[in-house]
């Protein structure tokens, strides 16, 4: 796998951390070079070209998105919740999206990862569960593996940026809980993700 380094000095150090993270996860899937993604890309990158399947529906009950906010912040003290709900605060990004068959964290999420790592570093009693998800393509247990590896990639990013390993657990759902139904790229893009869930102790 090729890893492109950003030229921006500002981002260089963090990029290094992410590069080492990718190397550490040897055997990382997605053996085709990934496109160099702009740091502030507003939407998930298109997945690598795969056989398009038409007409099907994603299997499995859909999770209610409105409940994610509530569920994902159960472990955050009331006085801090506003930060996590402020769209201008990087802590409001609590879903990390991935490319097809990849567990490399796209660069545009670096800021959010750093913010969450800092928050965890400053609140050692708070714990985070990383829930890994995939799209519906491929077999279920392989996708459980892929979701786990995505969760572990985020865990690595957080601990390298200062969060304590004991503050983080992972849980991979594979393809079992799609965020979006449908068997097209726009649904798939929303489903390849890791959700950051601050759990109540």
């Amino acid at each position: 796998m090729k890893t492109q380094f950003a030229t921006s000095q500002r981002k260089y150090a963090l990029r290094l951390v992410f590069a080492s993270l990718v190397i550490a996860l040897a055997g990382c899937a997605g053996n085709e070079p990934l496109p160099d993604e702009p740091v502030d890309a507003p939407v998930p990158q298109q997945a690598e070209q795969r056989p398009a399947s038409s007409g099907g529906t994603a299997s499995g009950p859909q999770i209610d998105a409105s409940r994610l906010n509530e569920r994902g912040l159960q472990g955050i003290p009331m006085e801090d919740r506003a930060m996590f709900l402020d769209p201008n605060n990087p802590l409001s990004t609590r879903i990390i999206y991935f490319d097809f068959d990849s567990s490399q964290i796209p660069a545009r999420f670096e800021q959010a990862i750093t913010a969450h790592a800092n928050y965890l570093a400053n609140h050692r009693n708070i714990t985070l569960r990383l829930e890994g998800h995939t799209d519906e393509r491929g077999t279920r247990e392989y996708n459980v593996g892929l979701g786990e590896r995505r969760a572990q990639a985020v865990e690595r990013g957080l601990t390298l940026s200062g969060a304590g390993a004991e503050q983080i657990t992972t849980l991979s759902f594979g393809e079992e809980r799609p965020a979006a139904f449908g068997s097209d790229d726009s649904a798939y893009d929303k489903n390849r993700r890791v959700e950051l869930i601050y759990v109540k102790r």
């Binding site: 996860l25 040897a26 055997g27 899937a29 068959d101 077999t139 247990e141 392989y142 459980v144 593996g145 892929l146 590896r149």
Partner: peptide, 21 residues
């Protein structure tokens, strides 16, 4: 370091096949 999963035994119990990337 890859994902190794989906093991299955050969009928004689001698081998395991599995999925790996």
């Amino acid at each position: 370091g890859a994902i190794d999963t989906e093991p299955a035994w050969s009928p004689d119990g001698q081998y395991i096949v599995f999925t790996s990337d």
